[in-house]
């Protein structure tokens, strides 16, 4: 389990979040949903160790950590593929960076390339493939970290609707096939409702947890599911501050 407890962060006089807490169950998919500028990215910076918290603690599987840099894989909005490496070399970066066994890893990466629809593209350069394929390669690289916790920072927000839909199902594979524990931040309500086991609704700054929802609807989910439509209306109401159905 990932446990974030009582985290506070201030930049000067501005409080980004105060006494912020949430937890993620092992092998769960928790989505943090909040309005733009609420401090989601700062939270991820804090989780990855780019910035440090003023107060509070992080624990993964009961072990207290200053940040999750050593235990989490990371994927973000940009595919972050290095243009001087082929897709395969990019996917192997987590292994190369720590002087791991590249030959053994290459076989594993090749299987993942095939599984994620990149067969035949391993030796293409990043500029020669589409944005969606670049994100699939980033997904392979994320899996090559071989870490059970995956942090997703709006990983699909730069993609077109069709590609995003395909990649949403691939993100679900991380949970169902590769048994990862996932934490994703997004401001896309539909994406959150399609993927989350637990939805954490955040307030504008200072960011606190406004409401949590446990979604029991089986995956893969459909946009026209009446429960999701009702929940979407409720969440939208909460985020925009307009009237909403309080039956949740």
């Amino acid at each position: 389990m990932l446990q974030v407890s009582g985290v506070t962060k201030q930049f000067g006089l501005q409080t980004i979040f105060s006494d912020f807490s949430f937890s993620v169950a092992e092998n769960g998919f928790t989505v943090l949903l909040g309005p733009s500028g609420c401090g989601k990215s700062t939270l991820f910076d804090l989780l990855t160790g780019v910035v440090s918290a003023d107060t509070g603690s992080l624990a993964w599987r009961g072990r207290q950590l200053p940040h999750l840099g050593a235990v989490a894989a990371y994927m973000q909005q940009k595919d972050l593929l290095l243009p001087w490496f082929s897709l395969m070399d990019n996917a192997l970066l987590p292994v190369k960076a720590v002087n791991g066994d590249v030959n053994a890893a290459e076989g594993r990466a090749m299987v993942l390339f095939e599984r994620l629809g990149l067969k035949g593209y391993a030796h293409h350069m990043p500029h020669a493939v589409s944005g969606g394929m670049g994100q699939r390669c980033a997904l392979v690289r994320t899996l090559m970290f071989e870490r059970d916790l995956v942090l997703l920072d709006e990983p699909l927000s730069a993609l077109d609707a069709i590609t995003r839909r395909t990649l949403q199902s691939l993100l679900l594979l991380l949970q169902t096939e590769f048994n990862k524990t996932l934490v994703m931040i997004t401001h896309d309500i539909e994406e959150a409702l399609l993927l989350a086991d637990e939805l954490v609704l955040l307030t504008p700054r200072p960011m606190v947890v406004q409401e949590r929802f446990v979604l029991k609807t089986p995956k893969p989910r459909r946009f026209d599911d009446p429960e999701l439509i009702a929940l979407k209306s409720h969440v939208l109401g909460k985020l925009t501050g307009e009237g909403h159905d309080d039956s949740f």
Binding site: T48, G49, V50, G69, A70, A72, A73, Y74, Q76, K78, L80, L82, L93, P94, K96, A97, V98, N99, F145
Partner: peptide
Amino acid sequence: DFQTLFRLMGGGFWK
């Protein structure tokens, strides 16, 4: 972002 990625990968200075 690339620096963060490498830090999370555990890449040392020379790598």
